[in-house]
Design a binder for these strands. Structure first.
Lengths: 230, 230
DNA sequence: ATTTGCCGAATGCAGTGTATCGCAACCGTA
DNA sequence: TACGGTTGCGATACACTGCATTCGGCAAAT
């Protein structure tokens, strides 16, 4: 019984860690959306049985939490921003860009408290940029207001993007020419202002729309920051 | 063969319509969240087989669309508002209140274009309140910005509310005393500003927080509306 | 009275998240 | 060197999902 007769020892399972799991999950989500992420498929991509993951994760939601935090790493500004406004602006645009790269993130944005290390780092950077410019309550309100705008605006953008992709039409053409339902509804005359808006509206670039709304919100924040606390 | 010998005629299936289906689905969602809504359970609540629903709905997502639109009926203002600001404010608060009543709505807000009749009516009312106050682009930007803030803020509020409910602690106590992870993270000294904020922060009422941020955004809108178009 | 057509119900399928359990390999110890 | 304990992986199993398809039986039409 030489070595040659004996089979190779069974390959020990590839060591796993959360990093590899999250990476695999993000790949799947990038390719096929959140619904393409199943514990079985993630495990298969790592040559492991599905149950193996439960050593690193105790529920699927936790996997989503890890994924969200992982993407937050892409949002960290690489250089210290000039002023608070620049800081908030950069954070907003980086959030948007990260979500455009990982569109499934839109489904998770604002859905759960984000307490991962990367998310905390992002929050820290944001708070630091505003530190001392007003009383704490005002600062918190500012950050949360900008955050709320971002999640809402990004969600809407992705939602429209998906709708366009599904119908193969631009948003305007879609709700004007195609979408029979909308056309019929507008034709009823029950929504005159809306009908006029759809008819006269010019198609606006999504990024520009996001940026403009953001500047409005930043204007509002600026007004509250310069005013003395209270 | 008297009447008594013959069995009762088999009870014809209860007639169905979308209204009843949506109502049943909303009841389920109100009780157990979105995940408690399955086609089987909805059908069971209507004494029907699951496949019966596919005569009225061709996919589960469509059911969600119907549910969202149904709740939008609760958001319609009952009286014509005084000015545009009042209109936007009322719409925002009614959206929030409806979502607090139907918390599953937070999971859907902003997730898809809302094109149902009730949603269109809400949009129409909002646009009408702003009609003529500025050029169309500005008006659209205003509506979309306020909407974005609402969805984002409401989502965050519901997310926090669920987290508090899950841990049985208020948000502050939760991230300060309990949440071992957060505590440990803050203790690392990598997030000094955040740590200070958590330590010094006062707990703010969710509604007040929502209202304040909303007024900020409305201030920003006001600034753009009064300014001449362009 | 017979046929036709249609619609609701049952069945089936592929896939999900997760609990349970047996087995096999490792390690420290005798 | 032999052994027992522990650990952790994998297979199996379960309850459940959305949806496609098939089948049966009633209602209306001829």
């Amino acid at each position: 019984m030489t070595v040659w007769d004996r089979p190779e020892p069974p390959t020990r399972p590839v060591p796993l860690d959360r990093e590899r799991i999250v990476t695999a999950a993000i790949e799947l989500a990038d390719e096929g959306g959140l619904e393409a992420v199943s514990l079985r498929k993630v495990a298969a991509r790592l040559d492991a049985g599905p149950m193996r993951l439960y050593g690193y994760i105790s529920t699927k939601e936790e996997l989503f939490d890890l994924m969200v935090d992982e993407v937050h790493a892409e949002m960290l500004p690489e250089e210290r921003p000039g002023d608070w406004r620049e800081a908030l602006r950069v954070r907003a645009h980086r959030t948007r860009q990260a979500t455009l790269r990982h569109q499934w993130l839109a489904d998770l944005l604002g859905g759960r408290p984000t307490l991962g290390p990367n998310a905390l780092a992002v929050t820290e950077a944001t708070l630091a940029a505003l530190d001392g410019l007003a009383d704490l309550d005002t600062v918190m309100r500012a950050v949360e207001t900008v955050n709320a705008y971002c999640t809402g605006a990004i969600r809407r953008e992705i939602a429209n993007l998906r709708a366009e992709r599904a119908t193969g039409l631009s948003k305007r053409d879609w709700q004007r020419a195609s979408g029979p339902h909308v056309t019929r509804m507008l034709a009823t005359g029950r929504f005159p202002t809306l009908a006029k808006a759809v008819h006269d509206g010019t198609e606006v670039d999504a990024e520009e729309s996001f940026a403009t709304g953001l500047e409005w919100v930043l204007d509002a924040v600026a007004a509250k920051l310069t005013r003395p606390p209270g």
